[in-house]
């Protein structure tokens, strides 16, 4: 089956990108890796009159790390490049390990982190770990630019806070916190290569035996990747005993809002949220990085 017809632009600068988009933002799809875009154009889940490729825009593929300012992942930086980046591996291992579970080698050599986020799937595997790291997105428009926390950027299935004439130039991760422990767990009942039935990213610091800065983020169990705020609150400031962890896991189960799909039923996903949250928190407490 063929892709539908569209016009194609490959601008070399951001100005050219905005010129190409013009006032046709709603008829435009931005192309970074295309691994989500092409199948969704083919199946009719997304439609467009024109595709604007970002690959040729100088500088958008950069991955920059500075201990003072943190990590910046450009819009065209490939998943594989981020996964293999030495600074990411050293300072943000949860991101590298999440990417390793995402799709396949071939997809990771074509798809981008920013594309994964902008695709705005509830099961975008980079979203929970980046949310756990406190990431922000930089939104650039024809006239100005601004930043938004990633938590909240994705507003619904295939919907984000990006306006049609804007693009996400990069995702920004705060400087590494050596005391912050992070973990990402993903589960599919069918295969090691599959869209997550449930994913969990969790982060916390242990200070004098008490859990601080607890963050619990869930994938695939709500219209967007979600912050399990109540679950985190159930643990925050407390000694992470197994009873406390169990309570946090049950709380996460209660606050997720999954729907049934053919990978897993709603009830099974709720159950998995509890199991995976418990396992994630235990892993953190027992010495996660």
């Amino acid at each position: 089956m063929r892709l539908p017809a569209f016009d194609y632009h490959a601008p070399a600068t951001l100005d050219e990108v905005f010129a190409a988009i013009g006032d046709r933002g709603r008829d435009t799809q931005l192309l970074a890796g295309g691994t989500d875009l092409l199948p969704s154009l083919r199946s009719g889940k997304r439609r467009c009159r024109q595709v604007v490729a970002l690959k040729g825009v100088a500088g958008l593929d950069a991955i920059r790390f500075d201990p003072e300012t943190g990590l910046e992942i450009g819009a065209c930086a490939l998943l594989a490049e981020v996964q293999d980046n030495p600074a990411v591996r050293e300072h943000y291992p949860v991101l590298a390990s999440a990417i390793r579970t995402l799709a396949t080698v071939q997809v990771r050599h074509k798809a981008t982190v920013v594309g994964n986020l902008c695709n705005a799937s509830p099961c975008a595997d980079t979203a929970p770990p980046l949310m756990a790291l406190g990431a922000r997105v930089r939104i650039v428009g024809p006239d100005d630019q601004h930043e938004l926390p990633l938590d909240g950027f994705i507003t619904g299935p295939r919907r984000t806070a990006r306006e049609p004439e804007e693009l996400i130039s990069s995702v920004l991760v705060p400087p590494p916190d050596p005391a912050l422990r992070t973990v990402f767990l993903k589960f599919s009942p069918r295969s090691k290569v599959d869209i997550s039935a449930v994913s969990v990213a969790a982060a916390l610091r242990l200070e004098d035996g008490l859990a601080r800065a607890v963050g619990i983020f869930l994938g695939t169990v709500a219209p967007t990747p979600m912050r399990a705020a109540s679950a985190a609150a159930a643990l925050e400031g407390l000694e992470p005993t197994s009873e406390v962890i169990d309570l946090a896991a049950r709380t996460a189960r209660g606050e997720c809002q999954p729907v049934t799909d053919f990978r897993a039923s709603k009830e099974y996903k709720q159950h998995l949220v509890e199991v995976l949250t418990r396992r994630a928190l235990r892993a953190l407490v027992e010495g996660g990085a």
Partner: peptide
Amino acid sequence: ALSEELLMDRGRTLNATLLDYKLPVAED
């Protein structure tokens, strides 16, 4: 035994891609 099933809804096959119809991969 475990992962493959053509899921049907009133004669319609719901999982007609190799993403959704799950063959075991080398890691499985």
